[in-house]
Design a binder for these strands. Structure first.
Lengths: 246, 246
DNA sequence: CAGTGGTCTAGACCACTTC
DNA sequence: AAGTGGTCTAGACCACTGC
């Protein structure tokens, strides 16, 4: 069979061959947006393989946003959706280490209290309970990198009440102790705060990135943090982007 | 069979049942990071289904970053990697319309020229050729929203030389005419430029988000743009996050 | 109604890697 | 050497939906 010969030659799994063939046709505009591509049965004959193999390729392309699949209606090339993009957000520790600087976290304040109205809003936790509230600074090579305030729900993470966050940065502790699968990130441009400007010896009109993060999992809200990132050379970068239809 | 009864009851595909079962075990720490989960054969017996069905569930969980799969070594729960997140970046038009304002783009300058050293760096295109250089402003309800400069490679997109970008915003035209599958986005905090401050009637210390975007194709670089987003209430938001090991 | 994709089976061979 | 995942087959039944 042709297929067997092909496999020997390129040593690529058939479903990946199908996938990249179709992806290339879409990107070269040979199959433009709105184009109805051959059905699974037709592709199965064309590649001389089983339907499951074609299905795997098409499912993967659909997940990547290249195709839209509809029963009876067939599979159609999607219109590009450059309106959305995907960005990787490092946490301060990783950002600093990646830039090749030594990293240090200094805890400024640690407080335990009943949930206030503001905590409830930040955490999206409307049941009563306790939180730990933390304020600290991330340093890169003895220069201030970011100011962080954070609340951790003791309902979700009772152990957090016992931790000495002067020794372990809260982001690091949370990562290694609390699994989560959901988060919201918000990025804004802000002026530096007077407090932080003084600490970092920077002018009061310094622009900063503010990164707000909320995490939760199936069991409820976990943590809320706001990081004011002081370095005007700091960048958030996306390495790779895919079409993404939700 | 139990499986058949289960399917009737919850009407969920078996592979999704398996997927969510395992995801829940991971998120509840019942299967902590580093835990070696049952093999495909064991799960297949446990759920009374074929191995392909188990495989589909596990492959999907591995793609989402929950599991790491190794031949002979088995499938292991990954350590959470909250260092990375996924963010959707709207383009100005969509951002403005989403906020419920009428959108308008005004072209300020359009120029065609040979690629300069700066163009080459921006576009990552080191072959000689021509570019279109555009400067324009995005308006939300007659208020300035963002200042945009953009270069489009005429090598990749010769048609762009003929377009009247006073009538069609470049981002919109590119979306509907040029497929791409690769991009880099960079976000920084910047002070407003004097030019833009004057146009928008804003103080010179206004913080702005700068969004730099480069797009490619398999066929080469397409476009580079820098947007200086003036609205200090503008936010970028990520709706959802996955563990992502690259 | 008929075509399409969604799902599933009960096998199979192979590649890799740890034991 | 043996266990694991990666891939694939040649069928099958079903749900949905456009014609």
């Amino acid at each position: 069979m042709d297929r067997d010969k092909a496999r020997k030659v390129d040593s690529l799994p058939v479903h990946k061959v199908i996938r990249s063939d179709i992806e290339r046709k879409i990107l070269s505009n040979e199959w433009p947006p709105g184009f109805k591509i051959p059905s699974e049965h037709q592709l199965m004959e064309q590649y001389g393989c089983a339907r499951m193999t074609v299905n795997k390729a098409l499912t993967s392309l659909a997940q990547a946003g290249f195709l839209s699949r509809n029963r009876r209606g067939g599979t159609v090339v999607t219109y590009p959706d450059g309106h959305t993009a995907i960005l990787r957000i490092p946490d301060p520790r990783k950002a600093v280490l990646n830039a090749g600087h030594p990293y240090r976290y200094q805890l400024l304040a640690q407080e335990q209290r009943d949930i206030t109205a503001k905590d409830a809003e930040f955490l999206r936790e409307h049941r009563p309970g306790k939180v730990v509230d933390l304020t600290g600074v991330h340093y890169a090579d003895e220069a201030v990198f970011a100011w962080e305030t954070r609340q951790i729900s003791l309902t979700a993470v009772p152990e957090a009440g016992e931790v000495d966050f002067a020794r372990v940065p809260p982001s690091v502790w949370l990562l290694t102790h609390v699994p989560w699968n959901n988060a919201t990130h918000t990025i804004r441009a802000k002026r530096i705060t007077p407090e932080l400007a003084k600490l970092a010896a920077l002018p009061l009109d310094t622009p900063c990135l503010e990164l707000e993060r909320q995490t939760w999992n199936n069991l409820g809200p976990i943590s809320h943090s706001i990081q004011l990132i002081v370095s005007d050379s700091f960048e958030l970068q996306a390495q790779f982007l895919v079409n993404s239809k939700t």
